[in-house]
């Protein structure tokens, strides 16, 4: 069954149309990359799916249920995990505690003021940290973790809620090149293993073409192409607007000098 189905999504800010009739769908175990130039409406699309923005028109269906305009907290409860472009973790807690808090929240165990939290969901948290490769960092405070490790921690926290859909907004921004591919391969493995649907935006074309099953290309708020990576790579319109032919210096596909 389709996990996420977005249809005719529309949003404008102060009269400017940011997203104009965008539709796409993500199946279980599938990774869909949303790409396009800066200002194309990727983040706006993303925030409408994640509940941070309410769509002006169109529908966002999660396993058949309309979640357009539902609060992020409810959307989480319905099985959507997310990571942020700028990592958001709990700096005053260890990596393990971060995941524990997420797991306890998922099991509705937060409102117990008298129970000690030290051992709640500890095995689950440790297993998740192990899965994302952070077992060695479990007892370090999130505030002192390296940026790449924070991205992994966010992933573990998102997975703690056993989501059906994972939203990742520029998951590899600010990471070193080697780390990027490693992180997204990890996500690829988890998506396949758990049947998790993944929707992500990304500027790094190596990552996009390396891990995604399908790619949707946005430009000026509208979907100009979507399909398998090879079809997208060959699409003349996409090359003209976004990927380029490798000679123009102005329009850069990525935030990291990879267009040469």
């Amino acid at each position: 069954m389709t996990v996420l189905a977005v249809e005719g999504l529309r949003k404008s800010f102060g009269g400017v149309l940011a997203v104009d009739g965008v539709s796409f769908a993500v199946e279980p175990g599938e990774m869909l990359a949303l790409i396009g130039p800066n200002g194309a409406g990727k983040t706006t699309c993303f925030n409408m799916v994640g509940g941070q923005l309410r769509p002006d028109a169109g529908s966002v269906r999660l396993a058949g249920r309309d979640i357009g305009g539902v609060s992020p907290r409810r959307i989480c409860r319905l099985g959507v995990g997310r990571t942020f472009q700028v990592t958001a973790t709990f700096a005053s807690m260890t990596a393990r505690e971060n995941v524990q808090v997420a797991a306890v929240a998922h099991r509705r165990g937060t409102w117990r003021p008298w129970r000690s939290a030290a051992d709640l969901e500890r095995p689950a948290a440790e297993a998740l940290l192990d899965q994302v490769g952070l077992a060695a960092q479990a007892e370090r405070a999130a505030g002192v973790l390296a940026y790449g490790d924070l991205k992994r921690l966010e992933l573990a926290m998102a997975l703690a809620a056993e989501p059906r859909l994972l939203l990742m907004d520029e998951p590899t921004a600010g990471m070193a090149a080697g780390e990027r591919v490693a992180l997204m391969r990890l996500v690829r493995g988890i998506a396949t293993g758990r049947g998790l649907a993944v929707l992500f935006t990304e500027h790094d074309m190596d990552v996009v073409f390396g891990v995604s099953d399908r790619i949707a290309v946005l430009a000026r708020g509208a979907l100009i192409a979507s399909g398998a990576p090879e079809a997208i790579r060959a699409d003349p319109q996409v090359r003209a607007i976004y990927l380029g032919d490798g000679r123009t210096g102005g329009e850069r596909p990525a935030s990291g000098g990879r267009d040469c």
Partner: peptide
Amino acid sequence: SPFGYALRASRDSPLRAEAI
């Protein structure tokens, strides 16, 4: 307690707290 952790979570990152 779990509540105390959730309180600190809400302080450290309201964005993340709501998202979990």
